[in-house]
Design a protein around this nucleic acid. Structure first.
Length: 293
DNA sequence: CCACGGCCTGATTC
DNA sequence: AGAATCAGGCCGT
């Protein structure tokens, strides 16, 4: 199937850049499980080529990637920022995904003090252990397990899947969501601040994780997750040494408003591939050295 | 309110 | 080779 779009879409940094953890590159295409179905995506002339067993896949894909026509205007607004403009120009097509809230919540509780490749492995094993098996194409796969299924696994099993010391957090959070103590769907309609506060009440969810869930899972575009990369990128790009404010979220909201989340994604991606301050990003040397015998 | 140490785990680094 | 270091933080003190 094919979806036409004249909007820029950069699949690789969008799907593999640390927002979602269940996509992998297969040649020039990307395969991943979204909303319980296996998808393959690739850039194609005039748009995207995609496959999925799901009916009405085009609409779901458009929603997931945010192909609603609003992106060019957002790029235009961010490009008014003289500091951000060159970053936006270099990576136009990088998008904020609209993922399922529950999966996003588990993923980012898992992300705390952790590496992306390890997060991917943990979530893959979780899906295999507790997610509904599917076999509607060439390769079988597993849907992401719902909160009840995760809670049922138990703490020890979660540890064995690799969650480590986060296992009790994941289980307690799963229980809270499964019982309805935390209604994630309702938080989509709530304000970003209300959503953030509700998420912060969950074990294993601090400020950074709450903002990631608000942004990537609940569609709150003003959420501005501050991690060490963003803290350094903002300090380096927008302030003289030692003059960065304590509250970077307030800075971001004042500067970019409801585009703060997208701005964050550009800054994060730029920091990782370009390195902050012109320094090489970790991984650059690894790739170089691993090429040698 | 704020600063600080500890933490599963495993890939990478030294 | 075997020991540190580090990773998109969070929690408890």
């Amino acid at each position: 199937m094919h979806v036409a779009t004249d909007e820029p879409v950069l699949l690789a940094p969008t799907l593999l850049g640390g927002q979602s953890f269940r996509f992998r590159a297969i040649g020039d295409a990307f395969a991943g499980v979204v909303e319980g179905d296996l998808w393959t995506l690739a850039t194609a002339p005039g748009g995207l080529a995609w496959t999925s067993a799901r009916r009405r896949g085009r609409a779901r894909l458009a929603r997931y990637l945010g192909l609603d026509g609003s992106y060019p205007a957002a790029l235009e607004r961010l490009s008014q920022d003289p500091v951000l403009a060159p970053v936006v120009a270099r990576h136009a097509g990088l998008r904020v995904l609209r993922q399922e809230p529950w999966e996003t919540l588990v993923a980012f509780v898992t992300s705390a003090n952790n590496h992306v490749p390890r997060i991917e492995g943990i979530l893959a094993r979780l899906a295999e252990a507790a997610g509904e098996p599917r076999d509607d194409g060439e390769v079988p796969y597993h849907a992401f397990p719902d909160a009840d299924a995760v809670a049922r696994l138990g703490e020890r099993r979660l540890v064995s899947l690799g969650f480590g010391y986060r296992a009790p957090y994941v289980r307690a959070t799963a229980r809270a969501v499964a019982r309805g103590d935390c209604d994630l769907e309702a938080l989509r309609e709530a304000s970003c601040g209300e959503a953030r506060e509700a998420l912060l009440a969950l074990p294993g969810v601090g400020p950074k994780v709450a903002d990631c869930v608000a942004l990537f899972g609940l569609g709150h575009g003003e959420a501005f997750p501050v991690d060490r990369w963003i803290a350094r990128a903002v300090a380096d790009r927008f302030f003289e040494a030692g003059e960065a404010p304590r509250d970077l979220k307030a800075f971001a909201l004042a500067r970019w408003g409801s585009d703060a989340g997208l701005a964050q994604q550009f800054l994060f991606h730029a920091a990782r591939v370009e390195g902050a301050h012109g320094r090489r990003a970790p991984g650059a040397s690894r790739l170089a050295s691993s090429a040698a015998p």
